[in-house]
């Protein structure tokens, strides 16, 4: 049961690494702070799963976690490393995957049954059809438009996964406590955004001088 959490942390670390790798060397600003995360909407006590929960038309990760990213015009860079979102234990793992536009995400099926991943979201419509864990090559989708993509399984109606396609190389998943740290940021005037759920994205203006560290909390 700790696997999702470790995967989440892994994804966060990967994100950090990607950010660090993508940042120009001269840019050395760091923004850190804390996002005030909402209280869990629904706490499935009996069967504690980690995933996307829907309530009142809002999709939010459970346990709550935020994606903090820097919005602005950034020059295009090289090929993106492939993202990965598995289906494991009838859940998407990770449940929330922030990627940069142009990233290909593979969807390996780690369950012993069929899954059928599809999305009708405007940011990306696709339908992978049914496949099993031994499907090769592992079905993957290139996400070429920014936006929130809701993933569903046509066979298991409860399954939800979110892919946040961002038009920026600077993004990071917060910790479960809402703390984040975004390093290697270029200087300039930007908007720092914190995505909390499908309806809520907080924005703060930020001026970066290329060095030093700024603390920015999202109350």
């Amino acid at each position: 049961m700790n696997l999702p959490r470790s995967n989440l942390l892994l994804a966060w670390a990967l994100g950090l690494a990607a950010c660090a790798g993508a940042a120009p060397l001269r840019a050395a600003s760091t923004v850190a702070g804390r996002v005030a995360l909402p209280k869990p909407l629904a706490a499935p006590v009996m069967n504690q799963r980690y995933g996307i929960v829907a309530s009142g038309g809002v999709l939010s990760p459970y346990p709550p976690v935020a994606v903090v990213y820097l919005e602005g015009a950034f020059p295009p860079d090289g090929p993106r490393p492939e993202g990965r979102m598995a289906q494991q234990d009838f859940n998407f793992v990770p449940m929330l995957l922030p990627i940069r536009v142009g990233t290909r995400v593979s969807f390996p099926n780690l369950d012993p049954v069929y899954h059928n991943i599809f999305s009708f979201s405007p940011a990306k419509r696709f339908d992978l059809g049914r496949y099993r864990s031994d499907e090769r090559p592992i079905p993957s989708v290139l996400f070429d438009q920014p936006g929130l993509v809701t993933l569903r399984c046509d066979i298991h109606e409860h399954m939800r996964g979110l892919i946040l396609v961002l038009d920026t190389p600077y993004f990071v998943l917060s910790g479960p406590d809402g703390r984040y740290r975004l390093a290697g940021l270029p200087s300039g005037h930007y908007r720092l955004k914190a995505w909390i759920d499908s309806r809520t994205t907080r924005t703060r203006e930020v001026d970066l001088d290329g060095r030093g560290s700024i603390r920015m909390d999202f109350p």
């Binding site: 405007p122 809701t150 569903r152």
Partner: peptide, 17 residues
Amino acid sequence: ARRPRIHAALEDDALDL
């Protein structure tokens, strides 16, 4: 009425689908 595709079309703003 419970089919995920139909729900997806209605919930994910994809009426054309």
